[in-house]
C-alpha cells in the first residue's frame, strides 16, 4: 500500500502557498491591465514618434527573462534604498511584465475595429471618448478577452519565479515540504495538480469564448 509522510498540515501549507500565488497574480494582472490599456491605447492611436519609443521599452520586458528582471529590480530597489519588500518588488515587476503583453492585446483589439465603423460613429456626432467607450471598447473586448485570459494564466505560471526572491508561493512551499519528508515526486505532483486545477478550467473557458465569439 502507498505510504507517505505528507500530513494534513502540509496540504494546508501548500494551499496557503497557492493563495500567495493567486494574490501576486491578482496584483500583477490588476496593475498590468491598467497600464496595458493605457499603453495599448497610446500605441494604437498616438502618432508614431510617441508609439515607437513606447513599443521599444515594452519590447524589452518581453525579450529579457523574467528571472533577470526580478533580480535586477530587487537589486535596484536595494541600491536606491526604497526598502520595498520582496512581495512588492515581485508585484511591480510582474505588473510591468504583464502590461507589456497586455498592451499588445489592447492594440490588437483596437486595430480589429474597422476604421469605417469608427468614422461612422464620429460622423454621427460622437466625441472621441464616446467613440472609444461605446463603439471601440465593446467590439474590441470580444477580440481581447480570450487572449487576456490566456495572459492571466501565463502570469500565474510565471509567478513561480518569485520563489527566487524568497517568497513562499506554491512551488516554494512544495520545495520546503520536500526537504522535510524527502518525497519530491509525490509532493511536486500535488503542487502541479494544484496549478493544473487553477489553470485548466479557466483555459477551457478562454478557448470556449474564443470559439463562440469567432462566428459573431
Amino acid at each position: 500500500m502507498f505510504e507517505t509522510a505528507l500530513s494534513f498540515n502540509d496540504i494546508i501549507f501548500l494551499l496557503k502557498g497557492a493563495g500567495v500565488t493567486l494574490l501576486v497574480t491578482f496584483w500583477a494582472m490588476a496593475g498590468g491591465t491598467l497600464m496595458g490599456v493605457v499603453f495599448g491605447t497610446i500605441r494604437a492611436t498616438a502618432p508614431r514618434w510617441v508609439g515607437w519609443p513606447l513599443a521599444f521599452v515594452l519590447d524589452i520586458f518581453r525579450s529579457v527573462p523574467l528571472l533577470i528582471q526580478l533580480i535586477l529590480a530587487n537589486a535596484f530597489q536595494a541600491i536606491a534604498g526604497l526598502q520595498m519588500s520582496a512581495f512588492v518588488v515581485s508585484c511591480v515587476v510582474l505588473a510591468l511584465y504583464t502590461s507589456s503583453y497586455c498592451s499588445e492585446i489592447v492594440r490588437g483589439g483596437i486595430d480589429a475595429v474597422p476604421v469605417t465603423t469608427r468614422r461612422a460613429a464620429r460622423s454621427l456626432g460622437m466625441t472621441w471618448g464616446q467613440d472609444m467607450r461605446e463603439i471601440v471598447f465593446p467590439l474590441a473586448l470580444r477580440v481581447m478577452l480570450p487572449s487576456w485570459i490566456g495572459l492571466t494564466l501565463g502570469v500565474m505560471k510565471d509567478t513561480a519565479l518569485i520563489t527566487w526572491l524568497g517568497i513562499i508561493e506554491l512551488l516554494r512551499s512544495s520545495q520546503i515540504i520536500v526537504t522535510r519528508i524527502q518525497e519530491p515526486l509525490f509532493v511536486l505532483s500535488i503542487a502541479g495538480l494544484i496549478y493544473f486545477l487553477m489553470s485548466f478550467p479557466i483555459s477551457r473557458l478562454g478557448r470556449h469564448l474564443e470559439k463562440k465569439w469567432q462566428d459573431l
Partner: peptide, 12 residues
C-alpha cells in the same frame, strides 16, 4: 505542459 509552470516541469 500548458497548465503548469515551466519551473515546475524543470523541478519534476
Amino acid at each position: 505542459a500548458r497548465n503548469t509552470p515551466a519551473l515546475f516541469q524543470i523541478y519534476m
